[in-house]
Design a binder for these strands. Structure first.
Lengths: 112, 112
DNA sequence: GGTTTAGTTAACAATACGGTTTACCATCGT
DNA sequence: ACGATGGTAAACCGTATTGTTAACTAAACC
């Protein structure tokens, strides 16, 4: 039997909460087209640079992006692989769900 | 051109942050096997009933579950459809990303 | 060497989150 | 009618989140 107590899944905590913020999702969508330096990345957002920098830290800690220094600029790039962990979790839900549906279906079938 | 300013996506905010908590993910996983009344649902968790009740409210507001009253019990059931919105968002990222990879690949190809 | 450019760190404020305990309401059983 | 059961609401507390401004570090340019 599977345990209901929430076992530690710090990656998923960080991943889901990283993407729970619209600014951070917009950052991810911008980075999908290729790497950008922080200034260019931050330009369209209506907030201070430190605020954007903090969002980048959140995304980096969650493993969604990485920042590397080149000259005096920092370039941000996406780690799309990290998003797989989330879709895997959701897929595992759906798998169980569909098993349940199948079980119900076959039960109904047996009743006939 | 797509706008970088984060347009309102309240559903995604609520969905991602609903699943950013390990207790709430465990609740979802338990409900995947079928509906449960709040007491049974809450039993394995090492926290008070009001705490679980609040988590259920968060999940309900995010559209992940619904609670219906039958007698004096409240039964919780999953709305797996709601999870699609998240996977759609992630898929849209991946689609852009793969377009970018394709573009790079064909660029490299052209260079040869 | 001094100044500009790029970005982070620090300190702070307001609000949200996640838990508690107590009080409450509604339903069932006797 | 009354007590027990199932669950939510209210009030509260500590911590985390999201933003601000000001100060700082590091590379680039003249």
């Amino acid at each position: 039997m599977t345990l209901a107590t929430p076992l530690a899944e710090p990656d998923l905590d960080a991943l889901f909460s990283a993407l729970a913020n619209p600014t951070r999702r917009a950052i991810v969508h911008r980075l999908v087209h290729g790497e950008l330096q922080v200034n260019d990345l931050a330009a369209p957002f209506n907030m201070s640079l430190p605020a954007v920098s903090k969002h980048l830290t959140v995304l980096e800690d969650a493993g969604v992006i990485s920042r590397t220094r080149r000259g005096r600029a920092r370039f941000c790039s996406l780690h799309p692989r990290s998003l797989d962990e989330m879709t895997d979790w959701i897929a595992s839900c759906r798998a169980h769900w569909e098993n349940t549906l199948d079980a119900v279906a076959s039960y109904v079938e047996d009743e006939k």
